[in-house]
């Protein structure tokens, strides 16, 4: 099903291909950069180590008025922090998280 948001479907399809052979960091870096470019979302990724979330890749500077961070685990080891979903709304956000989780799983499988 197409979302009607230009850029989101292409982003989603690319993630569905499992990061096209990139290592996890490079794949996440690209996912965050394209999310920012294509539908205005800002996010970064972190390695989950007990309480600590240690930065891996993604958006580094903060949008001026962002006030609510959304922190989600994508796997046991990797989490995403979204500070701005840009033009994505409810259902697309859930799809985006699913796609990101799939990307982490695909990269983990490749080692």
């Amino acid at each position: 099903m197409e979302s009607g948001i230009s850029g989101f479907d292409a982003w989603s399809r690319e993630l569905g291909r499992g990061g096209a052979g990139r290592d996890l960091r490079a794949a996440l870096e690209r996912a965050a950069a394209r999310a920012a470019r294509d539908f205005g979302a800002r996010m970064w990724f972190a390695e989950i180590l007990g309480r600590r979330w240690s930065y891996i890749a993604g958006s580094m500077e903060r949008a001026p008025a962002a006030v609510a961070l959304e922190r989600r685990a994508l796997s046991e080891r990797i989490g995403v922090v979204v500070e701005d979903w840009g033009r994505l709304a409810g259902e697309q956000r859930a799809r985006a998280l699913e796609r990101l989780a799939g990307l982490c799983a695909a990269c983990a499988e490749r080692g």
């Binding site: 970064w44 972190a46 979330w53 930065y55 903060r62 922190r71 989490g79 922090v81």
Partner: peptide, 14 residues
């Protein structure tokens, strides 16, 4: 900061 990935190079950049 350290519970949402604002660590290391990310923190320095901010």
């Amino acid at each position: 900061g350290y519970r949402c990935g604002r660590t290391g190079v990310h923190f320095m950049s901010l």
